[in-house]
Amino acid sequence: DWEDIVRFLRKLFELGEEVVIGDWHNHHREEIKRLIEWLEKHF
């Protein structure tokens, strides 16, 4: 279910905002944000 995936990604992203998950999070933050925005537009 796409909504569950979007919710999971958003939760992960919000957690990442508070607890910076090292370089991985910083590197992928923009991609995650773009992916969430893309999914919201399409689903």
Rank of each mutant, 00 (worst) to 15 (best):
D1T: 14
W2E: 01
W2R: 01
W2V: 01
E3V: 11
E3F: 10
E3A: 08
D4A: 11
D4L: 15
D4N: 11
D4T: 11
D4R: 14
I5D: 00
I5W: 14
I5N: 00
V6M: 12
V6H: 06
V6Y: 14
V6P: 02
V6L: 14
R7H: 06
R7W: 03
R7A: 07
R7D: 11
F8K: 08
F8G: 04
L9N: 00
L9G: 00
L9Q: 00
L9H: 00
R10E: 15
R10G: 04
R10M: 12
R10Y: 13
K11G: 07
K11C: 07
K11N: 08
K11I: 11
K11V: 08
K11Q: 11
L12P: 00
L12W: 07
L12I: 10
L12G: 00
F13T: 02
F13M: 07
E14K: 11
E14A: 10
L15Y: 05
L15S: 04
L15G: 03
L15W: 08
L15P: 02
L15A: 05
G16M: 15
G16D: 04
G16I: 15
E17L: 15
E17M: 15
E17G: 13
E18I: 11
E18F: 12
E18G: 08
E18L: 14
V19S: 09
V19H: 09
V19D: 06
V20A: 08
V20E: 05
V20G: 10
G22L: 03
G22I: 08
G22K: 08
D23F: 12
D23T: 02
D23Y: 03
D23W: 11
D23S: 05
D23A: 05
D23C: 09
D23R: 04
W24M: 09
W24G: 05
W24P: 05
W24S: 07
H25R: 05
H25W: 15
H25L: 15
N26C: 12
N26D: 15
N26K: 14
H27D: 11
H27P: 04
H27C: 05
H27L: 11
H27I: 12
H28Q: 06
H28V: 15
H28W: 15
H28G: 10
R29W: 15
R29Y: 14
R29S: 12
R29F: 13
E30H: 08
E30W: 07
E30N: 07
E30R: 12
E31Q: 11
E31T: 14
E31W: 15
E31D: 09
E31L: 14
E31F: 15
E31R: 11
I32F: 08
I32M: 04
I32L: 12
I32A: 02
K33I: 13
K33Q: 12
K33A: 10
K33L: 10
R34A: 10
R34N: 04
R34W: 12
R34Q: 08
R34M: 11
R34D: 04
L35T: 03
L35N: 01
L35C: 05
L35W: 06
I36W: 11
I36G: 02
I36R: 02
I36A: 03
I36N: 01
E37L: 08
E37G: 11
E37Q: 08
L39H: 01
L39G: 01
L39K: 00
L39T: 01
E40K: 12
E40Y: 13
E40P: 01
E40D: 10
E40M: 14
K41W: 12
K41R: 10
K41V: 11
H42F: 15
H42S: 10
H42V: 12
H42T: 07
H42K: 13
F43A: 06
F43L: 09
F43M: 04
